[in-house]
Amino acid sequence: MYKIGDFSKITNLSVKALRYYDEENILKPSFRNEENFYRFYDDNDFKKAELIILLRELNFSISEIKDVMKIYEGQADLSYILEEKKDMVKKKIIEEKSLLKKIKLYIKPKLMEDNNINYKIAFKDIPAVKVASIRYSGKYSDCGKYFDRIYKVIKGDATGAPLNCYYDDDYKEDADIESCVPTLKQVCDSAVTTKELPPIRAISTIHTGTYESINMAYKAIFDYTQEKRVNCLTPSREIYIKAPGMIFRGNPNNYITEVIIPIE
């Protein structure tokens, strides 16, 4: 048996850390003196300490270490746990890369210029249009995979630029979206529907640049409709006049999107 000071030396864990792990039920001493409450550790505790040190080196959080200590029974368990941690790290890397892209937008001097674009607002009568579409609930960035599915079904029979219809009145984490591609082709597919978008009276503007800054186009429209006391309806539409390719994204500063909002 090892006293806490000796155990600290052989594990390279401070006494403070050992006491903390005891309080958090991560590494409790195998024996505690009832009279003076001294902690004593054995070889089994040493193996647990080695595991904790490894998990710390692999950047496991305290809550994750707690969870591991509850379910760990041997090396086979650790292999499964590390595979899961690897997937979590990969997901985090993707999220961090996305964050870096957003940060870069705010580093560029051009951003402030983009925020001050003078959007040209126009009233339009939009005719009915036949489309192949998929309606779904998901993130705004999910539309690429749905457009990909639609294009595979209609093959080369698109008759116009792809567009999204947004059915929510406000921003949603899981939005009600319909991705559409104009076509005269009648499709037969379990996920893709052929339908006609109705004619609408609308107000529109053209946004040139990244999708991250397209909110400025909506602001311009809503500022105008408030000034003119025009009532907006749903679904709004975004027509992707110039958009990323299926393989290469190209220069996002050159994307061209028409933002269309139906009005009464």
Rank of each mutant, 00 (worst) to 15 (best):
L58H: 09
L58D: 07
L58Y: 11
N59D: 05
F60R: 03
F60H: 03
S61L: 03
S61N: 03
I62H: 01
S63W: 11
S63A: 14
I65P: 01
D67S: 15
V68H: 00
M69Y: 04
M69T: 05
M69R: 06
K70R: 08
K70Q: 04
Y72M: 00
E73G: 08
E73P: 02
E73F: 12
Q75D: 12
Q75T: 14
A76H: 10
A76G: 11
A76E: 15
D77I: 06
L78G: 04
S79H: 04
S79W: 04
S79M: 07
Y80L: 14
L82G: 06
L82N: 07
L82M: 15
E83L: 08
E83G: 04
E83M: 08
E83N: 09
E84N: 11
E84K: 13
E84F: 08
K85S: 01
K86A: 01
K86H: 05
D87C: 00
D87L: 03
D87T: 00
V89A: 11
V89F: 13
V89S: 06
K90L: 13
K91P: 00
K92F: 03
I94T: 11
I94S: 04
I94H: 02
I94R: 12
I94V: 12
E96I: 14
E96Q: 15
K97I: 02
K97W: 00
S98L: 07
S98C: 05
L99V: 09
L100A: 05
K101C: 01
K102P: 03
K102D: 10
K104Q: 14
K104I: 13
L105V: 07
L105W: 10
Y106M: 15
Y106D: 15
Y106I: 09
I107H: 08
I107N: 11
I107A: 09
I107E: 15
I107T: 06
I107P: 06
K108T: 07
P109R: 15
K110V: 09
K110L: 03
K110D: 03
L111E: 02
L111A: 01
L111C: 01
M112D: 12
M112C: 07
D114Y: 11
D114N: 11
D114T: 14
D114Q: 12
D114F: 09
I117T: 08
I117A: 04
I117N: 05
N118G: 02
N118P: 00
Y119Q: 12
K120R: 13
K120H: 09
K120N: 11
I121L: 02
F123A: 05
F123G: 02
K124C: 09
K124V: 12
K124T: 11
K124W: 09
D125M: 11
D125R: 11
D125V: 13
D125L: 10
I126K: 02
I126T: 02
P127F: 02
P127M: 02
A128S: 15
A128C: 06
V129E: 13
V129L: 04
K130Y: 07
K130T: 10
V131P: 03
V131S: 10
A132Y: 03
A132H: 01
A132T: 01
S133H: 03
I134H: 00
I134T: 04
R135H: 08
R135F: 07
S137G: 07
S137L: 12
S137A: 06
S137T: 04
G138I: 10
S141Q: 08
S141M: 06
S141L: 07
D142E: 14
C143H: 09
